[in-house]
Design a binder for these strands. Sequence first.
DNA 1: TTGTAGGCGTTATCAT
DNA 2: ATGATAACGCCTACAA
Lengths: 351, 351
Amino acid sequence: MSLSEKRSGAGQLHGPASIKDIARLAGVSHSTVSRALRNSPLVNPTTTREIQGIARDLGYQPSAVARGLVTRKTRTIGVVVTTIADPFVSAVVIGIELAANDNGYSVFLANSNADPARETNVVHSFAERRVDGIVVTSSRVGALYTSLLSQMQVPIVLINNQHPGQFVHSVMIDNIQGSRQAASHLVYLGHRRIAYIGDQYGHQSDTERFEGYREALEKAGLPVLAELVAHGDSTPEGGIVAMDKLLALADPPTAVFCYNDMTALGVLRSAHVHGLRVPEDISVIGFDDLFLASYTQPQLTTVRQPMQRMGRMAMESLLKLMSGQPSGEPVKVPAELIVRESTAPPRPDTL
Amino acid sequence: MSLSEKRSGAGQLHGPASIKDIARLAGVSHSTVSRALRNSPLVNPTTTREIQGIARDLGYQPSAVARGLVTRKTRTIGVVVTTIADPFVSAVVIGIELAANDNGYSVFLANSNADPARETNVVHSFAERRVDGIVVTSSRVGALYTSLLSQMQVPIVLINNQHPGQFVHSVMIDNIQGSRQAASHLVYLGHRRIAYIGDQYGHQSDTERFEGYREALEKAGLPVLAELVAHGDSTPEGGIVAMDKLLALADPPTAVFCYNDMTALGVLRSAHVHGLRVPEDISVIGFDDLFLASYTQPQLTTVRQPMQRMGRMAMESLLKLMSGQPSGEPVKVPAELIVRESTAPPRPDTL
DNA sequence: TTGTAGGCGTTATCAT
DNA sequence: ATGATAACGCCTACAA
């Protein structure tokens, strides 16, 4: 039995073909095969053609794991998100993935679900798999990721979370400008009792969005009332709870600015349950401009984040970082108010 | 300078620590380290403790890539989806990921976006990265994945797509039973002109959901009218277009059963634009029970798929397949009709 | 209980 | 233009 029969005759007995198999069939050394496969000008064109032909016949697929071992680059990145169930997150992930694929990178996706145990797991698995870089899309960045950084010596890009550092870059929406626009729009419409329903306490985006709201009210000479500030949790359920509380007030707000569209979804629901019509009885503004903002009833006025583009920008920053370039200033992306149907002037009798 | 100073003194100069570094520090061979790290009973407890201590101090993280090269198992799976922007898909992915993590697997996520070029890319990257298995959540499985299978010799689990084969398993919702329930519910409410808005032509789930619809109508002695069958594309936009067409009919339907909730979202919108109230003027049923089905106005009656659980089941099937067990029969998951507010008896004058 | 000696599939550095 | 040979970091016989 000839050497070539050993493989082609016996079939793929020991897994995928390797350059050694090809070398045997082509009667050359595996180094030559390695070169030919990468179109090295050093190897004879005829030989190259023959080798590539054999590779094709064998259905050869180079082993990224073997390559990664020697090159010390896996062309792999890790993406950590709180939960991909949030459409904001999935839109961002799509952008990351597109940019990653365009550059030959594959992405490991990990949902942390805000569970510390899972986050630790994620960190470990990314470290063990030797990802070349990491993108974090999470509303809160704990000390966890910081320690991860120092341990792994791997570039990290944060989305909507600032966290300066040599290997840490960030891409964020201009929260203050965005929410200032939203609140100003409500002021402009004539509202004077404008509520804010935020995310959980302490998250940077929430703090900033509240700040924009505060500035807009202050500029209009309106007081920032503690009773008109509630906190949700970025989910529709959280929005319902917060809105219920607001509507139980002796003097409820005539407009509500929400941390995000998911919260606004719950607010819309709560308003409906309480027999209030939006925007006639109460105005609602969200943040994100998820696809579903165009499909709520009424369609939601919101502050748009170019989510997919932000994902792409994050990946592009990561590529720079991975190629050794310094991180530079955090990228701040402008937000845009999208006025739809959920906002209108307050009813005269509520003023 | 002692050997230990060479590393601890000089710092992590050549990347992450390896078992050789630990061996040097511990004064043992790397095989012993390898064993100790995996708690082999063959090594002296004292030695083990010392080695593990050094490993901890060094922040040692075993290289999954090196391990994968020798074991020929990467503990990695590939997940292909059309687009993670569809909440159905993201819910499924969450289930897959949870089950994967619970079993020490990491997941590569790839969006195909129904783009053939990208699909080819995905296949290649998964092959090169030597994933141990693949889960496909896509409404249409082309010949592409079949050829991939034979090339990679890797187990595959399909979600909502049957495709028998030795290495191919599938987990699917019971489309016929689910849609039969939905259509029967409309029949029961008294509707006689019930429309169906499907997905794109030729997709298995669409064919089956139509079949359930057909059966229910037939059983009720109702004709299946071609004019009442429209096709969308699983997106709200597609739902709008299809619904607009239906409402332009001389004798429009009094109820619409949609391929999925995303389609229903568009249908709800279209109805509103045409001045129709749901469910008073027209009833609407979706399929999936996405989180947003509880937040539409009115809340959507729909057929629930246990999406996250299906993702988990798919991963668990994949684990079996990867451990060498035969695939067995495709798993068929029962669907459940969830009656909310978007369905009601037809208006008497429309009968 | 521990050490030695391959080998996994590449790339890379020498020679030739 | 091509071939030996040595890594990369780990696992695993086989020896001691």
